[in-house]
Design a protein around this nucleic acid. Structure first.
Length: 280
DNA sequence: CTTCACGCCTGTCAGC
DNA sequence: TGCTGACAGGCGTGAA
């Protein structure tokens, strides 16, 4: 489900509600979602902890607790986090409940149960594979045009596949990758090293623009995503190509095509994203 | 080193 | 109605 704009929306929603609250107990209904430490240790260690603030890296949500402990949650495909006032919000796929000191709850729900949770001291976050190799994220200082250009050079992978590589850019997922390529006018199957300078520049700006719009609209609800209040996002009304196979391109009215690239459903306009470059 | 296929899970939907 | 297969917003692993 969630890519960087969705996780950021959840972070913003939750931050004001849980910062300063204490976790009085945790109900672990599906222990295997807890990847570190063991589920019983996790439950014991998190009990009584004060939540100081919320952070985010790519698609990872970080709850900074007292004593330098960090609760790390990755929602993967169908994870959802809700703030439930006095048990008013429910979800039949609830897998963990954090009971707070004001009688409210933080719910972790997950249909496909692919999500992951960790509880670690701040200086041991390197244990989380994926988080420890995460690349710079769009809109951040580290994500510069120079960095982007240097990472594309000599790469034979298809540009779409590379955009989904979290070691390269942290936070892009399938929706925003397709949208970015459309905005930049680049065919998803072009190899990374075939992009010309002006295309690299367009794609770089498109990524930042698309991610910023996603955040501004409170994320994209295509199927499972909900924000911390259980509501849908708004960016699905602004999608150009994602999920719009056979519908007219907003720019040229050609039918949007759906193909598979790197094992992922990929949407693009065959007119506006012309296949050009060295790898034809 | 890079790239790719597969597995993890459960649900929904289209087609028969 | 029931069945089957395709598909789903992610990512780690291991093989080539």
């Amino acid at each position: 489900m969630p890519e960087m704009p969705e996780v950021e929306t959840i972070r913003r929603d939750l931050a004001e509600k849980v910062a300063g609250r204490r976790i009085v107990s945790a109900d672990v209904e599906l222990p295997r979602l807890i990847k570190w430490p063991t589920a019983p240790e996790f439950q014991a260690m998190i009990t009584g902890k004060l939540i100081n603030r919320l952070g985010r890296r790519g698609k990872y949500l970080l709850f900074y607790l007292e004593n330098n402990m960090v609760l790390v949650i990755h929602l993967r495909m169908t994870g959802r986090l809700y703030y439930s006032k006095q048990g008013q919000l429910t979800d039949k796929f609830t897998r963990l409940v954090f009971n707070l000191d004001n009688g409210d709850q933080l719910l972790y729900a997950d249909t496909r149960t692919l999500g992951t949770l960790y509880l670690l001291p701040k200086n041991e976050l390197w244990r989380i594979s994926g988080l420890n190799t995460l690349g710079p994220e769009p809109l951040s200082e580290d994500f510069t045009l120079e960095y982007f250009r240097s990472k594309l050079a000599k790469r034979k992978a298809k540009i779409k596949a590379l955009l989904l590589n979290q070691q390269f850019i942290g936070g892009l997922g399938n929706i925003y990758a397709d949208e970015s390529l459309f905005v930049a006018g680049i065919h998803p199957e072009r190899t990374a090293d075939s992009l010309a300078e002006d295309e690299i520049c367009r794609l770089y700006h498109a990524i930042n623009q698309v991610i910023a719009a996603g955040i501004e609209h409170g994320g994209t609800t295509f199927r499972d995503y909900r924000n911390a209040r259980g509501s849908s996002g708004g960016h699905q009304h602004y999608l150009y190509v994602y999920g719009r196979a056979n519908q007219p391109c907003p720019n040229c009215h050609s039918p949007i095509q759906r193909i598979e690239v790197g094992g992922r459903g990929t949407h693009f306009c065959p007119q506006c994203q012309i296949w050009k470059g060295r790898n034809t």
